[in-house]
Design a binder for these strands. Structure first.
Length: 447
RNA sequence: GCCCCCAUCGUCUAGUGGCCCAGGAUGCCAGGUUCUCAGCCUGGAGACAGGGGUUCAAAUCCCCUUGGGGGUACCA
């Protein structure tokens, strides 16, 4: 069962899909899915200088990764040049447009703007009126035979029978020009819904200097697509209750333009990280393991040597502790490295102390006899050691942790040792002891 | 300059005249759990940009100012 609602996402392939564009695509997609309409994709490559094939591919890849599937297209405006030319000439014949040669000798077709007022009834902003006397006769067909944005957009939206134009509110001031074109052609004027823009974290227009702004960057840093989608959906839209984590089907079910607000939103990486962490916690270990394997491999770790079961245990241990796969990699790198890198501050604070070497030796002998090197046996033997030596467990845990991980922060110490394995644990412990008493400088050099 | 849009905690937002001395989330702070950190639990600080109206009553309606954003291209 479908309705006759048709929307489109029409990016220009002059760069990667950035998060603002992704959010526009998402809102169009949600609107189409909610209304059982059609969502189509159109590539607006009418700028011969800036459009690239790579950018088009990157946009398609990003859409797919986000799960925003389209029902028609992608259409490319560069493939439809004849249509625009014929349409522009028709307007010239009707006296609604004219040829114009500029100072540089370029001959183009301009549209003749009529004086008057144009009113648009925006689905989000309500009524907006413009004085069209303030709008100049604008170019619709450039000297290179390509149409301009405003022209191609109208011709295509009419041709593709778009019923609702959902786009960024930076297009509000283009709308009266487009409406004039619709009227000149006698086309039915679609509904307009101008959604608020997404600004950078400092409130200014989103640009490269804000760090990650493209969807591909988030993918490469190990974010989950659904988390990004959820986060983006909540920028300018809300389900009407206090819900923050919303599944895609639920989003589709609840999405209406009425609940889209008018105020621009600043992107907030911190909250995205939190949300991604929530999604990770709600994702099965199996699936995360597969993702982690792919991510680690891409990051240069030879996964051929890593058993799947072991990796699965690693993911389980860190399940509630990592926010992105990049984060997981950073937290668990010491498992994969042959030599550990000591955190100097931690070494100073916990290892360069009286009696530490003796303590570590005690630990070594206590655990080196364990046959089943699991967390239960490790805990039993170390608890016993604290009773025997009178050293509190908290005084023992940190030096031990740094000895085998190099850091003062890690997952539980018993679980970490079990996962590292007896051989590596003992080797690292022994190396740290050696470094401490024989060549304390080695610790420094390693770092 | 001119035209247009917008204005609730730092940030994302709920709120469509009384239910709001403004609710949720994130972040921050404190306490708890604890081998560190994270997580989790509990508590706390934190906003209606300013000024005029309208009304018995305004975060909610109107006007002005200020601030932010966008447009003003043979870019999209």
């Amino acid at each position: 069962m479908t309705s006759n609602i048709r929307v489109r996402f029409a990016p220009s392939p002059t760069g990667y899909l950035h998060i603002g564009g992704a959010r526009t695509a998402l809102f169009n997609w949600l609107f189409a899915r909610h209304n059982k309409g059609v969502f189509l994709l159109r590539i607006e490559d009418t700028d011969q200088q800036r459009s690239t094939e790579e950018a088009t591919q990157a946009i398609l890849d990003s859409m797919k990764w986000l799960g925003l599937d389209w029902d028609a297209g992608p259409y490319s405006q560069s493939q439809r040049l004849a249509i625009y030319k014929r349409s522009a000439e028709k307007l010239v014949e009707q006296g609604k447009a004219f040829y114009d040669t500029d100072a540089e000798g370029r001959k183009a077709i301009r549209f003749k703007m009529q004086d008057g007022t144009t009113e648009i009834n925006d689905l989000i902003h309500g009524n907006i009126t413009f004085d069209t006397a303030l709008i100049e006769d604008f170019v619709i067909l450039k000297a290179d035979g390509f149409p301009t944005y405003n022209f191609a957009c109208v011709v295509d939206d009419a041709d593709m029978e778009i019923t609702h134009i959902i786009r960024g509110d930076d297009h509000i001031s283009n709308t009266p020009k487009q409406i004039a074109l619709y009227k000149a052609f006698g086309f039915k004027i679609p509904e307009f819904a101008h959604i608020p823009m997404i600004l950078g974290e400092d409130g200014s227009r989103l640009s490269k200097r804000h760090g990650a702004t493209s969807v591909t960057e988030y993918r490469d840093k190990g974010y989950l697509p659904h988390a990004l989608v959820n986060f983006l959906a909540l920028l300018g839209w809300s389900p009407g209750n206090d819900q923050e984590i919303i599944s895609i089907p639920e989003m589709i079910d609840k999405f209406t333009l009425k609940r889209v607000n008018k105020t621009s939103a600043q992107f907030n990486n911190t909250k995205l990280d939190w949300m991604n962490g929530q999604y990770i916690k709600n994702t099965p270990i199996e699936q995360l393991t597969t993702e982690a394997e792919r991510f680690f491999e891409k990051s240069g770790i030879d996964m051929a040597k890593i058993p799947r079961g072991w990796l699965s245990n690693l993911v389980t241990l860190y399940h509630e502790r990592f926010k992105t796969f990049q984060d997981l990699l950073e937290q668990t790198r010491f498992f994969f490295n042959d030599t550990i890198e000591y955190d100097l501050v931690a070494v100073e604070k916990f290892l360069k102390k009286e009696k530490i070497v003796e303590l570590l030796r005690d630990v070594y002998s206590a655990i080196s006899h364990i046959e089943d090197f699991d967390k239960k046996n490790l805990e039993d033997s170390l608890r016993a050691l604290t009773v025997k030596t009178g050293v509190s467990f908290s005084k023992l845990a940190q030096p031990l942790r740094i000895s085998i991980t190099g850091k003062s922060v890690s997952a539980g110490i018993f679980e970490t040792m079990e996962l590292l394995g007896k051989e590596k644990t003992l080797t690292r412990l022994n190396n740290t002891i050696k470094n401490l008493c024989e060549m304390p400088e080695a610790i420094k050099l390693n770092s």
